[in-house]
Amino acid sequence: MMKLSLLIGLALLAAFLWVRLAPSDPARWHQLPDPEPAPRGPGHVLARLEAQAGHMAALDAIIRDTARTRVLAGSLEEGMITYVTRSKWWGFPDYTTLARRGDDLVLYARLRFGASDFGVNAARVGKWRGRLGQGG
């Protein structure tokens, strides 16, 4: 019984470390789907916003102000930025790409691990849109 408990504990530790330490490859995550399809399922959110003057910079500041969020790749000058936001306890990474597309801004949020994020990405994107003044 003790061996089984030890094995389960080690498996949980390995899973925790993989989620926390797995590298985030910008070549994989710093992109938008092309063509832009409907989101691929739970944990995937694709939102279009009206790109008024200064909105991309304002949204970038809002996103950077989000807890446990950092820039993975890109810049305002490039017209596309990808962020990684990690969950508080396990550190699950969610990736969000903000990009200028014609007269719109596109936000594409997606999870890396699991089949669902229980609505976390949709809520986060809605909060950012609300702070920008473009609804949730």
Rank of each mutant, 00 (worst) to 15 (best):
A53V: 12
P26F: 11
W18L: 13
F92W: 03
L32A: 07
D60W: 00
F118D: 03
M2S: 09
Y95N: 11
A51T: 04
L132P: 13
R48V: 04
G133S: 11
H55K: 03
A57P: 15
A115Q: 15
W18T: 14
L46H: 13
A73T: 05
G126Y: 12
M1Y: 01
L132D: 13
D25K: 00
W18K: 04
S116T: 14
L107K: 02
R68W: 11
L49C: 07
L4F: 09
M2H: 08
D117H: 08
R110I: 08
T69L: 03
A67P: 02
L6Q: 03
P42V: 09
V125R: 00
P39T: 09
D117F: 07
P37W: 05
P42L: 13
G133V: 12
A53E: 06
F92R: 00
L111Q: 09
D94K: 09
G133Y: 01
L17S: 15
R131Y: 10
L4K: 04
R101G: 09
R131M: 12
V106C: 06
P33A: 09
A57S: 14
G54W: 01
P93S: 13
G9C: 04
A14R: 04
D103M: 09
A47W: 15
G136D: 14
R129G: 14
P39D: 05
P33E: 11
A58H: 05
A27R: 07
T96C: 07
Y108G: 01
G91A: 08
Q31Y: 05
T66L: 01
S5G: 07
Y95M: 14
R112I: 03
L98V: 08
T96K: 04
V120L: 10
D34R: 03
S5M: 07
F16N: 02
M56Q: 06
A51K: 08
P26C: 04
A27E: 01
L107C: 04
R20W: 06
G114L: 11
D60Y: 02
L46T: 14
F113N: 10
K88H: 08
A123C: 03
M56N: 01
E36D: 15
F113L: 09
A51H: 05
I8D: 01
P42A: 15
F92A: 06
Y108D: 02
S24M: 02
A109T: 13
G136A: 12
L7N: 05
G54K: 03
F118A: 05
A58I: 08
V71F: 11
D104S: 14
R86I: 13
V125T: 06
P37Y: 03
L6T: 04
K3Y: 04
A99V: 01
L21S: 15
V84E: 14
S75M: 13
L17W: 15
N121I: 06
W18I: 14
F92S: 11
G135E: 04
I81D: 14
A51M: 06
W128C: 03
R100W: 01
A27W: 00
G135Q: 01
A58W: 00
R101I: 12
A123Y: 08
S75C: 13
D25C: 00
R70M: 14
G41S: 13
Q134W: 12
S24K: 00
L32N: 06
G54N: 01
S5F: 10
L105D: 13
